[in-house]
Design a protein around this nucleic acid. Sequence first.
DNA 1: CCTTGACTGGACCGATCAGTCAACTACAAT
DNA 2: ATTGTAGTTGACTGATCGGTCCAGTCAAGG
Lengths: 204, 204
Amino acid sequence: MSAPTDTRERILATARNLIYARSYTDVGVAEICERAGVFKGSFYHFFPSKRDLTLAVLDFILAETKERLLDRAFDPGIPPLDRLDRLAELAYGIQKEWAAPGGRVLGCPVGNLATELATQDEAIRAATARAFARLQRLLRQTLEEAVDSGALPAVDLDATAQAMVAYFEGVLMLAKTENDLKVIRRLLPALRHIRVPIKQSRKK
Amino acid sequence: MSAPTDTRERILATARNLIYARSYTDVGVAEICERAGVFKGSFYHFFPSKRDLTLAVLDFILAETKERLLDRAFDPGIPPLDRLDRLAELAYGIQKEWAAPGGRVLGCPVGNLATELATQDEAIRAATARAFARLQRLLRQTLEEAVDSGALPAVDLDATAQAMVAYFEGVLMLAKTENDLKVIRRLLPALRHIRVPIKQSRKK
DNA sequence: CCTTGACTGGACCGATCAGTCAACTACAAT
DNA sequence: ATTGTAGTTGACTGATCGGTCCAGTCAAGG
């Protein structure tokens, strides 16, 4: 029982904070160790490489996102379309929270890593893609319920869910670039209006 | 007259290619010089620093994007809403072209730099933000025409244009992450359905 | 012919990078 | 008591980082 060592957790949390606030390549192992109050040797005792650490950081982020964002937004007790509004509100709150300390909007931690590393590291690319797929699945389920209950006209469910993921990520990216939380306030609520119509045969 | 030296241009083009295909931090000055067939000394004769090079690369990208994408899509001779389809088609073609050599979808060169550096380098952040603002302006103008001609019901013009920028960037980012051009094919045409309704007073 | 100055070639710099390693400590099981 | 093992400490390595420096090249202008 007890806490066998919190070292690993400290490394993980510190790495998450630094990498999220800056970037993968910009943050070095030495800096992570320093800020976590850990020595190089301990780092490499727990993680075979910086790359493996990053994969672990991704898991960490995914777990946190699930409980802080997804589980709360995609609550079956909420009417389907309202879940989208909930998602937007929660995401805004989280972004605000992260922006507070450094005064910088940080965007989506998954999207940031994906953009930086997708073309360079296949494992990380795949992991981020899986994360997006999970969000897409939740959205698709929500849309399906909305259509079934008549709250939403028929749409291409898969494409619309994916488009919502894209929009969500795009808004966070834009907010990061403008370094302005208001972008999220302004744009994210329109998530519920994203629609990909069912595709018809080409218009000749 | 003549070509005073193509050295600077070669450095710029090489740097663009390398940075776009990988990332700012991952590509070193030495590698850029090597691939451009230029020596370190020449590099620093033309560019005071790697950061300044990157600013120049951004200009380079912006100029290219303007003539290859924006000028063609936002042609006043095309009906406003059709310009959006045109934008989607052209963007797809360009992405396909860039993906061909390395078999990797590269996403938006501006978005990539923005995501990687927005929190670290204020000048680059501002430059990418300006690029997005330019696209937003073009979209806003297009939407205005569409509304005036009755092709589109009234919407919040500024917010919708910005939402379209976000969606556009989000789709490219997702395509890069999934490493799949079909994502663009599938999602980008829905750009024309993005809508941010005119905001009403809070629902109580 | 001589100077000037843009440009090139390339050695070199200190700092930092990810990663290694052997010695050490603490505790558990035998 | 002894050994095994998980974890810690921190010096160290070779490579690479961005950047500096300067002697040399060359064409244009006087």
